[in-house]
Design a protein around this nucleic acid. Sequence first.
DNA 1: CTATTTTTATGCGAGATAGTACAAAAATGT
DNA 2: ACATTTTTGTACTATCTCGCATAAAAATAG
Lengths: 208, 208
Amino acid sequence: MSTKPRGRPRAFEPGAALDALTNVFWTHGFAAASLDMLAASAGVNRPSLYAAFGDKRTMYLRAIEKVAAQLEASIAQVLAGERPVSDELTTFYEESIAAYLDGESGPRGCLIVCTAPSSSLDEPEVKDALRAVLAMIDRGLEKRFATAREAGELATDTDVRALARVASSALHSLAIRARAGESRAQLLTLARASVALTVGVPRSRRKR
Amino acid sequence: MSTKPRGRPRAFEPGAALDALTNVFWTHGFAAASLDMLAASAGVNRPSLYAAFGDKRTMYLRAIEKVAAQLEASIAQVLAGERPVSDELTTFYEESIAAYLDGESGPRGCLIVCTAPSSSLDEPEVKDALRAVLAMIDRGLEKRFATAREAGELATDTDVRALARVASSALHSLAIRARAGESRAQLLTLARASVALTVGVPRSRRKR
DNA sequence: CTATTTTTATGCGAGATAGTACAAAAATGT
DNA sequence: ACATTTTTGTACTATCTCGCATAAAAATAG
């Protein structure tokens, strides 16, 4: 099937290179990330980067797509509907917080929530990608809440759409707060309070 | 008291110049705002800008301080404790949404929430300023909720600190969503749902 | 072994960028 | 009138920036 391509083989793996690009954008944002930094981080020369990914804006959009895909997978996996909705939502926040805090040199929040808004007015495609990701998060939570409503975990008259938007808000705020330097304990306080307000106290923490 | 200064008088008003700088940073963020843009927007030459405000980073920090002061004033005024907490909180969100949507050329969210996170890892002072503003918002809401609890509008065992952090989250999200292009109606839906979840349905909208 | 194809690496080049030096300008003090 | 003080505006420098042109390198095809 995939017979060997004709010319000189690539000296780098595009997937690993995109990981490196994503890392640079995550720390510095779009505008402050220079091509020299990006190329050095990927261990590749600038022309090779251009050949593989296009210009800087395209590289940034690829990074957003990559993170968005991971996030979508995480939502599908954690909010699978196998445990009580409050437990799953708690896990979702906890895992997000862990991801926001574990940058190579300190906390850095979410690439999309924390860096895309800044460049979204100069780069319409970034704005579109940002809006799409926000909508994807809303939809993922809405779907889980709809299941919970059917299962009797939420009142039958619950507006799951609006509820999902509130639950997403906590996620956005967690990303920003993590990047601003808030402690894990502070972030967890917000996460737990948000869960309690949106879907009720988790069974494991309910007084009795 | 303020006898006239000795040398050639200023040809621009520093307050108006800072407004112009703030405007540029609001649209483009810190890194993408060039000194040429800033100077042109303020109608001033670059050396005059440097003399008045210091370097670009300092200009950006002044812009953040200015917006933070306006926000603090808005919180004190709108959440004064003169009306039911749900009404005041609704007004607070509505006014914030109006501000997020009324940029000169389209919606642009909040300068601090939408642009500061992106440069906060490269510029520690920006990170500190961002964290301080987030804490200020949390405190302002917490204070109002504490008053509401004393007034019997919230249950006596309400954790007003955690509640305030959730209410702040909605504000952060509104800022980002506005900049991403969500409609006023979408933003209002989130605002109303957040009010309902945190402090209950406003009297004016309560069924009976 | 030669031709072809694709990637790599050096390096260029046009332009933007941040910050500053310096002289002219515009005010006040004496 | 003249010196002093402060701001203005032009010009400058040194550096960075993006993106690309071009030739060498490394593979396959025949």
